[in-house]
Amino acid sequence: MSVEKYVSFAAQSFTLPDLCLRIRNVLDDHRSDTDDIARMISVDPSLSAKILRLANSALFRFPSQIESIPKAINVIGGEALYNLVIAETANSAFKCFESGLIRLDKHWHSSVYCGMAGKYLAKQSRVRASERFFVMGILMNLSELVIAKCSPDEYQAYLSDEHPGLPWEKQKKYFNFTFAECSGTIMESWKLPLPLFFPVKNAHNPHKQAAERDIALIACAQRITLRENEPQEYGKLELFTPEIAASLKVEGETLGNAVSFANTETQKIVNLIR
């Protein structure tokens, strides 16, 4: 199957909640303000509670407690709140595409880990809107679930390949595209903003890694995740390829701290988004 057919399957099986689209419209409308966003979210008590827990989590580390949606918007900004809503929505998407071939809890943990590592690296690199890397990391391997659900035989053949090589190299071999490329295209079909889907879609393009920091950063976060979560097979994986190093300038200490941060905080975030 082509990447377009998997994207079509994903679009038919799961659509973004209307709330996500309405928040996006409000953010893009210069006549709207934070009160408009707060009113939308506040009518959903369950979502409001989850957003407040996330706003008070290690993702932001504010010194004072954020106890209301209006305060959350004023402190972290409308775009950050939108990203948190998308992160919460991602959990529902994962469940929609649950497959017996993938342990959903392990897959979700790994996805959040990638998001936490990416967010930390972005913040330390002073990248604008660093919290969006949390969402990118979470959604980066969404398509793996879609593919396993839609094409179990092909996915099983991919899983059974014991030849050496990185996952995205094997993905190109079996599917003619990487899971990140497919995930980014699904995100694009959901009309998520360009700064969310474009880095994911191009995460494994070496030329774009060398040219664009956002792409290099999310690629590095995925390498960290792979090395730390599957140490037996990828424990010696190079985190900084020449292409990544060309556009992402961080110290070795920052990489170590990103690992420590993700190791410490991932399970807390997993427990918040259920």
Rank of each mutant, 00 (worst) to 15 (best):
E4Y: 11
K5L: 13
Y6N: 15
V7G: 15
S8H: 12
A11G: 13
Q12G: 13
L16E: 00
L16T: 01
R24V: 05
N25H: 08
L27T: 05
H30C: 08
R31G: 10
D36W: 03
I37H: 04
R39Y: 14
M40G: 01
L47N: 09
S48R: 02
I51Q: 00
N56A: 12
N56V: 10
A58D: 15
I66S: 06
I69S: 00
V75S: 09
G77N: 04
A87V: 03
E88I: 00
E88Q: 01
A93T: 13
F97D: 09
E98A: 11
S99Q: 09
I102G: 05
D105S: 10
W108T: 10
W108L: 09
H109Q: 11
C114E: 08
G115W: 06
Y120H: 05
Y120P: 03
L121W: 04
V127Y: 00
A129K: 14
R132I: 03
F133L: 03
F134Q: 00
V135W: 01
M136W: 05
M136P: 05
G137D: 05
N141P: 10
L145F: 09
I147W: 09
E154F: 02
E154T: 07
E154H: 04
A157K: 07
Y158Q: 02
S160R: 13
E162H: 13
P164V: 06
G165V: 02
G165R: 03
L166W: 06
P167S: 12
P167W: 08
W168D: 11
K170N: 12
Q171M: 14
N176R: 12
T178N: 07
E181G: 15
C182P: 15
C182I: 13
S183I: 11
S183N: 09
G184R: 01
T185G: 15
I186F: 14
I186H: 14
M187C: 14
E188T: 12
W190E: 02
L192C: 13
P193N: 08
P195R: 04
K201N: 05
K201V: 06
N202S: 12
N202R: 06
N202I: 04
Q209I: 08
Q209E: 14
A210G: 10
E212S: 08
A216E: 06
I218N: 01
I218Q: 01
A219V: 05
Q222S: 07
Q222T: 09
Q222H: 10
R227Y: 03
E228M: 11
E228Q: 10
N229Q: 13
E230I: 13
G235L: 04
G235Y: 02
L237E: 11
E238L: 13
E243N: 10
L248G: 02
V250N: 02
E253D: 15
T254C: 10
A258R: 04
A262L: 07
A262S: 06
N263M: 15
Q267E: 07
Q267L: 06
K268D: 12
I269Y: 00
V270S: 09
N271K: 07
L272N: 06
R274Q: 06
